Amino acid sequence: MSQTAHIPSHRKPRRSASKLAFRAGVAGGVFSTIAVAGAAAPANAEPVTEKTLEMPTLGSLDADLASAVSASAEASQQEALDQSLAAQESAALQKAAKDAKKAKAEADRKAEAEKAEKARAEAQERASRTATRTSLSARSSSSDSSSSVATGSAAAIVAFAKAQIGDAYISGGTGPNSWDCSGLVQAAYAQAGIDLPRISSDQSSRGTSVSLSNLQPGDILYWGSRSGSYHVAIYVGGGKYVGAQNPSTGVVERDLDWDPPSGAVRIL
């Protein structure tokens, strides 16, 4: 035995012819199958391609981030602007409410001042009218103490005027059962044979002007100016007069202080 007989051989074992033939048959069958499949495929069939997933680049990520940051900044600016406008509107409303409250307080103050002034004026007017009535009453009493009873023509005038008390008032009335103020005075003086004008302003323009503190029965009282009077009546003594007042009252007898006359004239 040689010295190398115990060392295993490194040569590859030879393949048998049968195995090689088997492998060749298998390979030939596979290639044949592929060829048949290729021939059976449609001529216009699109080749199968592989799709590749594109990954975002670093540049596109930066652009998206910048766009998001810009949108966030714009949203923040809009929110700040909205808050500023809301604050301005609230301040304007508060100022308007304050101004309205101040204006109302000023209007109320003026109204109260006007009311107080009107009350003072009315009080002064009442006091003045009271003083006038008191003065007239005192004057009438003084006058009546010397000549409180009508005599002669004055008596006829007074008696006629009193006899018509209760008759109706009609504008333009001259009797016998309805009168206006100047119609009654004209008819009363006719009883004494005195012809007076028909109109009150003409009647008060006749005779002699006398003071209200020196009246005598039969004197003609007038309201308004002497040459432009709008109402007349007859003084009957005792601080009273008779006149055709208005459609509501007719011919009545009243105290001088009920409606103080402006003046008086004496015709007798």
Rank of each mutant, 00 (worst) to 15 (best):
L221P: 03
S229I: 07
G166D: 11
G207L: 12
V236I: 14
A264S: 14
A264D: 06
D259S: 14
D180V: 01
I157N: 09
G250S: 01
G183N: 02
K240H: 15
N177W: 04
V232D: 02
A150C: 13
L196E: 10
A244V: 04
D257V: 02
R254Q: 12
F160D: 14
S225I: 02
S201R: 15
R254T: 04
D167T: 09
K162N: 10
S209K: 15
S200Y: 01
I157R: 07
V252R: 12
K162Y: 02
D167Q: 07
S227G: 14
S248E: 02
F160Y: 15
G224H: 05
P247S: 15
Y222H: 04
Y222E: 11
G207K: 13
A163W: 02
S209D: 15
G224P: 07
T151Q: 10
A188D: 05
S229D: 09
Y235H: 01
S211A: 15
V232R: 01
G172R: 06
Q164C: 01
S201L: 08
S248R: 06
R254G: 01
S204R: 11
G218W: 14
Y169T: 00
Q245F: 07
G250Q: 00
G193I: 12
D259Y: 13
R206G: 10
W223T: 08
V251S: 01
P261V: 06
K162G: 02
T151P: 05
A150F: 06
H231M: 04
I220T: 07
G175I: 11
W179S: 00
S153G: 06
P197R: 13
K240S: 11
Q245M: 11
K162V: 05
W223Y: 15
L215R: 13
V252M: 11
Y235D: 04
D255R: 09
G183S: 05
L196F: 14
L196H: 12
Y222Q: 04
A168T: 13
L256V: 00
Y169I: 01
L215H: 12
A161F: 08
V185H: 04
A168N: 15
S248V: 00
P217G: 07
A187M: 08
A187C: 02
A163T: 04
S248A: 11
S201M: 09
V251A: 00
F160A: 05
S209W: 10
D257R: 03
Y189M: 10
I157G: 10
S205G: 14
G166N: 10
S200M: 02
R206W: 10
V252E: 06
T208P: 02
I199N: 11
T151N: 12
S153A: 12
D255T: 10
W179M: 01
Y169V: 00
A190F: 05
V185D: 04
R254N: 15
G166R: 08
A159C: 02
V232W: 03
I165M: 11
D257T: 04
S209C: 06
V236K: 05
Y189Q: 11
